[in-house]
Simulated scan of single mutants.
Amino acid sequence: MPDPRIPPAQLNRFMAAALRQLGLPESDATTVAQLMTEAETQGSDGHGAIRLAPYARRIRAGGYNLRPDIRVVQDRPGMALLDGDNGFGHLVMKRAAELAIEKARQCGVAWVGAHHSNHAGPASIYARMPLAHDMLGLYFAVGNANHLPPWGGLDMLLSTNPVAVAVPAGEEPPVVLDMATTVTAYGKVKAKAQRGEEMPIGWMIDRLGQPLTDPKRADEGFLLPIGGYKGYGLALIVGLLAGTLNGAAMGRDTIDFNKDDATTTNTGQAILVIDPAAFGDVAAFKARVDQVIRDMRGSERMPGVDRIWLPGEQSHERRIANERDGLALPDALRAQLDKLAGELGLPPLSEH
Rank of each mutant, 00 (worst) to 15 (best):
N144A: 15
A166D: 08
W111E: 12
L81A: 08
V112N: 01
L136Y: 00
P54E: 07
N144E: 12
A97L: 09
S117E: 12
F140W: 08
A123H: 01
G113I: 09
P130S: 01
A169H: 11
D85N: 10
M135V: 04
V165C: 14
V142W: 01
N118R: 12
I101D: 00
H133R: 11
E102G: 07
R71P: 04
R57C: 13
M93A: 03
P130A: 05
A164V: 00
L138M: 15
Q74C: 11
R60Y: 02
A80N: 06
M129G: 04
L157E: 09
F88H: 15
L52M: 00
A164I: 04
A120K: 02
L131P: 02
R95N: 13
V142G: 00
H133G: 05
D45I: 13
L82S: 05
D45V: 14
T160G: 03
R58C: 10
V92T: 14
S117W: 11
L52K: 03
R76S: 14
G63Y: 06
L148K: 09
W151I: 02
G48C: 07
H47A: 02
Y126E: 09
A49N: 07
V72F: 08
R67K: 14
G48K: 01
P168E: 07
R67A: 15
D85Y: 04
E172R: 15
A164W: 03
Q106F: 13
Q74D: 14
R57Q: 15
L157R: 13
G43S: 10
